[in-house]
Design a protein around this nucleic acid. Structure first.
Lengths: 217, 217
DNA sequence: CCCTTGCTGGAGTGAACGCTACAGGACATC
DNA sequence: GATGTCCTGTAGCGTTCACTCCAGCAAGGG
């Protein structure tokens, strides 16, 4: 490129800087975890000095918590059961319709994970850590996860209303946990692991499990 | 306690010290990840000076890799399909027998995880990290995981010999990934999450999936 | 035109980091 | 009891860490 990004920005721009810092942080923290995220690295990738980071955020703890907070909404949105066209409702048996909706939801989640894996990668690293003084980012991620769990419980209640509430909760725990595992498998295996295929298999497995649990009760 | 652990050990004892260092490291690294594991912390928990650590291990990288290496065997052992009493072989249909064996294997894995969670917790943290210079511990864990994956493929081949090889591989990936996820769910949720129950549900889900895949092909 | 506000730039703090150097104690072998 | 090996204990190396201080600059409002 001939035109260097002109000299320096011509006016102080806090909002833009804050965004750049958070972008840099989510990348680095998603690659190296909490301890591995150094202010110097973030500052270098954001193209801003350390003092700017400390102007926007109280300390490292708050910085990483802010990263989780920012992705909160987008992440939960992917966990919402999508509506279905009325034609399908009429054409299919309820059980078959539920399976189809579960598969759609699974595909939606898989795509969200492929799209921005940094958030969950960081979240899971934080969740696995057990240091004496818990980082606020970990607390925050666990809260997000709790809300996600409630959402899955709700989705199961909608797709399989005849399931006992405690059974639905167990199934939701299983569903969410397996999704985490599939994500990790894809992180490890790269493109050798077909995340969409695995999530589809997962949706089927859950539907099969509902059928089995239904018979059992 | 009146009797202080007497003064200091009376003879140099390398093997014992090495074990103490590795014990301390697996605990700390399992709690705080790679970067969070400082030599000073390990030295304090092992009750030995830093120089002893560096006498036994070349550097931090080798130390953490040694932790993974030591747990290698025990971990793979838990992933071995247990034999089954001949009486059961005769009494049950093949499909029902396969389900029972899968449940036994799942219970065995769940118990191994409850028994010593540090290894997998550390391994998963390492696996999620993506720093430019990969720690040898990560490479080593991925190798262990690869062997584990092969074992699951083999177990599926034994329990469901009619499944196409590629299908068996996909299923093995799914099985192992979900197991990781369930472990994490238990790490997060503590005793609110019944790991044995979830693994049993997983064994059923896999058996159901085999049935479905069998029909599909 | 000055003054406040919002943000950047650079220099630097003490503490913690991984790691090393080296003297010396405990034991085995002779 | 001398000698060599194994391991411990102390001190400290250079580097990086999170974080601070403060001068200075571009806008907006008076």
């Amino acid at each position: 490129m001939a035109s260097e990004r002109s000299a320096r920005q011509r006016r102080a721009n806090g909002e833009e800087s804050r965004r750049r810092i958070l972008d840099a942080t989510v990348e680095i923290a998603g690659e190296r975890g909490y301890e591995g995220t150094s202010i110097k690295l973030v500052s270098a990738r954001a193209g801003l000095p350390a003092s700017s980071i400390y102007w926007h955020f109280k300390d490292k703890d708050e910085l990483i918590a802010a990263v989780i907070e920012r992705s909160f909404g987008a992440w939960l949105e992917a966990m919402t059961l999508p509506e279905v066209e009325p034609a399908a409702v009429e054409a299919l048996e309820p059980v078959e319709l539920a399976r189809r909706r579960a598969r759609t939801l699974a595909a939606q989640m898989a795509k969200a994970l492929l799209d921005s894996p940094d958030f969950l990668r960081l979240g899971l690293m934080l969740a696995l850590e057990r240091r004496p003084e818990e980082p606020s980012a970990r607390t925050m991620f666990l809260q997000v996860r709790h809300v996600a769990h409630e959402r899955v419980v709700h989705a199961i209640g909608e797709l399989a209303p005849d399931l006992a509430p405690t059974t639905a909760r167990r199934l939701a725990t299983y569903a969410l946990a397996a999704a985490d595992g599939l994500f990790i498998a894809h992180e490890i295996g790269g493109d050798d692991v077909d995340l969409l295929d695995l999530f589809d298999m997962h949706a089927h497995a859950l539907s099969d499990t509902v059928a089995r649990l239904r018979e059992a009760q």
